[in-house]
Amino acid sequence: MSYKSHYQQFMAQHPDTLHCAPHSHHYWPDCTRDAQLAYWSDSAKGVDHKWDIIFGERVPDVQRRLAELLNHPHPQQFVFASNTHELLYRVFSSFDPAKPLRVLSTDSEFHSFSRQIRRLQERAKFELVTVATEPFETFPQRWLAAVKQGGYDLIFTSQVFYNSGVAAPELSTWLPEVSEQTQVIVDGYHGCGALPTDLQAYADRIFYLAGGYKYLQAGEGCCFMAVPKQCQLRPEYTGWFADFANLAKPQQGEVAYAGDGMRFAGATMDFTALYRLQSVLAWWQRDGLSVATMHAYVQQLQQAFLATLDELQHPLVNRDHLLVPDLANHGHFLTFKLDTAEQVAELAQQLAEQGIHTDYRGNRLRFGFAIYHDVEDYQRLKKALSPN
């Protein structure tokens, strides 16, 4: 089955392009165009009262749809922001900066986290314990050993690592070893909408971060965090959305927070992207398009892609240079590790000149897959990577 018909607007702008970077910026389906206009219409209709429409109708609907997508039992625990960094830092701001803060993470987290954590390390009482993800074969054991050391205030890890596509160990294999006093954040940006994800057993225990920029296909501007049900943290970095329901009451005394996920909300933002996300989730539900179905389709694409490379026998883009050959525990992009960053840059440019768009990080070339691809699309690789 082909899903290309749902992406006609984006594809019309790139008629001779094979977009192999959806893990970076996913094409938007056509339904998001009407959603963009719906936000304008609601703004015109509501003017000063558009927040009643947004928080009374749109936000609860998206919360419900995300909860269904992730099998999360508490829709009201989902909070929205323009980016995940904003939500991440609200959690960090819940800790007293005058007290020691000990964090466990990996060396393969997204740029905003790695930059923020480097800045926090300038504090006198901040300690970061980092576990290398490579070699991947031993990472689960090394991660579990680090978790068992204990004494952490916060643990942060990705669901799928952005620089490899490798899925992190299942929560069930290490979360039981974590003290109840430790906050746990899972960055699901490369997992949500790509890998089937079931949060029911962990909903009261972890923060789950994700957003619409990649596999949820809604573009930038709508990220979210699922907050543990009984969380009583009081983020210092806070805004007027964080107690929206009580805005009309006197604002004296200790700063109050919402009793649900909204306690981590910020302030005024453009909700256009939330409308786009709503339209994507509604399309999936309307057509019975589950994450499991899309994941299986992408896995078929990945196998077809690799079969094409086997025929091509390129000296660099081949299975021998595939960072992780086992695709059973893997996200929706494949990473090829070459000898030098220069080789990667040259290859990416060669592919781009033939209309095949990839992306790269240092000496790693990444090919992403999406449901707007067909198996036949990868035949273009033969011409693009031909020595002639």
Score class of each variant (00 low, 15 high):
1 M>F: 12
9 Q>K: 05
14 H>P: 00
15 P>N: 00
16 D>S: 07
18 L>E: 07
22 P>K: 11
30 D>R: 00
30 D>Q: 05
31 C>K: 03
32 T>M: 14
33 R>L: 12
34 D>Q: 14
43 S>N: 11
45 K>I: 02
48 D>C: 05
49 H>C: 06
51 W>P: 08
56 G>A: 02
58 R>N: 03
61 D>M: 13
62 V>A: 02
62 V>K: 01
63 Q>M: 01
64 R>L: 14
65 R>I: 01
66 L>D: 06
74 H>Y: 15
74 H>S: 15
75 P>Y: 06
77 Q>L: 03
83 N>W: 00
83 N>Y: 05
84 T>W: 01
89 Y>I: 06
92 F>V: 08
95 F>H: 09
95 F>E: 07
98 A>S: 10
103 V>F: 00
109 E>H: 04
111 H>Q: 15
111 H>G: 07
111 H>V: 13
115 R>Q: 15
116 Q>C: 10
117 I>K: 01
119 R>N: 11
119 R>D: 12
126 F>D: 10
130 T>I: 04
132 A>K: 14
137 E>F: 05
148 K>Q: 15
150 G>K: 03
150 G>S: 13
152 Y>F: 00
154 L>W: 13
155 I>Y: 00
157 T>I: 11
161 F>D: 07
163 N>T: 09
163 N>Q: 06
166 V>I: 15
167 A>P: 03
167 A>D: 06
168 A>I: 06
168 A>F: 06
170 E>G: 05
175 L>G: 04
178 V>P: 10
183 Q>P: 06
184 V>N: 02
185 I>P: 03
187 D>A: 06
189 Y>Q: 07
190 H>A: 03
190 H>C: 02
192 C>E: 03
195 L>D: 11
195 L>N: 08
198 D>E: 12
202 Y>C: 01
204 D>E: 10
204 D>I: 02
211 G>P: 04
211 G>H: 12
212 G>V: 07
214 K>N: 09
214 K>M: 00
216 L>W: 08
216 L>G: 01
218 A>P: 00
222 C>F: 02
222 C>M: 08
231 C>Q: 10
232 Q>W: 07
237 Y>K: 14
239 G>N: 14
247 L>A: 07
249 K>H: 08
256 A>C: 05
260 D>A: 07
261 G>F: 08
264 F>W: 13
266 G>V: 06
270 D>H: 11
279 S>E: 04
283 W>H: 08
283 W>I: 04
284 W>M: 01
284 W>L: 05
287 D>S: 02
291 V>M: 08
296 A>C: 10
297 Y>D: 04
299 Q>A: 02
302 Q>F: 10
303 Q>I: 13
304 A>C: 10
305 F>L: 13
307 A>L: 14
310 D>M: 02
312 L>K: 07
315 P>M: 11
316 L>A: 13
316 L>P: 09
318 N>W: 06
324 V>D: 13
329 N>V: 12
330 H>M: 07
331 G>S: 09
332 H>I: 10
337 K>I: 05
341 A>G: 06
346 E>Q: 15
349 Q>R: 07
349 Q>Y: 12
354 Q>E: 15
362 G>Y: 08
364 R>F: 06
367 F>Q: 13
370 A>V: 12
371 I>P: 05
373 H>M: 01
374 D>E: 15
377 D>W: 07
379 Q>T: 11
381 L>K: 08
386 S>H: 15
387 P>A: 15
387 P>T: 14
